[in-house]
Design a binder for these strands. Structure first.
Lengths: 207, 207
DNA sequence: ACATTATTTACCTAATAGGTCAATAATAAT
DNA sequence: ATTATTATTGACCTATTAGGTAAATAATGT
């Protein structure tokens, strides 16, 4: 059905893709404008409609397509054998940044797709809803090794607090990713800064 | 200029106020709809325009008005003599929840007003911009007593991590505040849960 | 030179935007 | 009870934008 879109050269396909993800993610389905998407993708509206059929189908297609991308490039890449929470966080966060360099709005798009209550797409989404984690917390950090934790701690609370702390840092990075040009961001510097925070957390939570 | 609005009985005034804050905060100035605001406030559009003059002036009025509210009911209430970071966080967060029970969107509105780049209001906002903190971090947590911290810690990183962790918890509460009816929320339970997390943090970061 | 594909200009109808006018409903004053 | 006044709304204005398409043009391959 979306073979025309899929058959495009990657550069244009990704231009349309990212323009759409951004518009949908930041405005929601109903308020998103196909005019804006076309303009930001750098093509005319009729040409875009030549590729995408209509707004609704396009959104639903994007949902499936993005879940595939995320499964391939994110979820499947996570090494579940790593049981150290800080190593796991390091891995998942860096991976996430990597994915977001290619698709800056993909996570927000999925989040909005899951949480939306737009009448037009609600039912369709309900049908095809594979098990997508809303919190991303239990799925990722349910099976870590807690034996390193300082004994006087409440493990569940500690895990939650660590997760929130790291999310705070990640949120800051994401803001930077979006405001500055992605290419000119110093990835190496981010990594060492991030490791600094992770070490600090390790010092406080581990024996 | 907005004497008509200010002279309203508090119930209606707050209905319009909160409807407007919500619409502006969640859509931004340009995309916010006066139709939606009037409908959600429970009055007709002409009546609303009878009170508010026009969209632009209304937004700018709201900006000043909300800063006043925040100064009176939030910033001025913070006990700056309290130098313990966890006590300070406890205080500010509970205060914030209290303010948000009255005006659920006031913080988001100010944030959007500060960050917006709408051509219509940008210049006007620049003129009247009193020093509003963007990060809220330095202003609140610059002068706390760090002597309780475990000696091997990097103080600045630790403060930042604590702040992020607490923000994570606060964000969760705010989501609940918005989804459920505010009145039916168990404030007492939140307080004890919050204290639980603060204690956990104290255990990990203090000697 | 022709057939085909890629792309845009110009347009459609319906909805919504900010905003107002003139009429109605409610209240207060006589 | 009647009038004067205030509070409130239905109907409407013009401009813009929404999603979407038909037909013409530009580019490409044969």
């Amino acid at each position: 059905m979306f073979s025309k879109f899929l058959g495009l050269e990657p550069k244009r396909r990704n231009a349309i893709l990212n323009a759409a993800l951004r518009e949908f993610a930041s405005k929601g389905f109903d308020d998103a404008s196909t005019n804006v998407i076309a303009k930001e993708a750098g093509i005319s509206k009729p040409l875009m409609f030549h590729y995408i059929n209509n707004k609704k189908d396009f959104f639903l297609f994007l949902y499936d397509y993005c879940l595939d991308i995320l499964n391939r490039e994110y979820f499947d890449q996570i090494d579940v054998r790593e049981k150290d929470i800080f190593e796991r966080l390091r891995q998942t966060c860096l991976l996430k940044i990597q994915v977001m360099q290619k698709y800056p709005w993909i996570f927000d798009f999925i989040k909005i797709a899951v949480l939306t209550d737009s009448d037009v797409i609600k039912d369709e989404l309900k049908k095809r809803r594979k098990m997508v984690e809303t919190s991303s917390f239990e799925r990722f950090y349910g099976d870590i090794d807690t034996s390193y934790f300082r004994s006087e701690l409440d493990i569940e609370k500690a895990k939650q607090l660590i997760f929130w702390a790291v999310s705070g840092y990640a949120g800051q990075i994401v803001d930077k990713l979006r405001s500055s040009d992605i290419s000119e961001l110093n990835f190496e510097k981010i990594r060492t800064e991030f490791d600094g925070y992770l070490n600090e957390l390790r010092k406080t939570y581990y024996k």
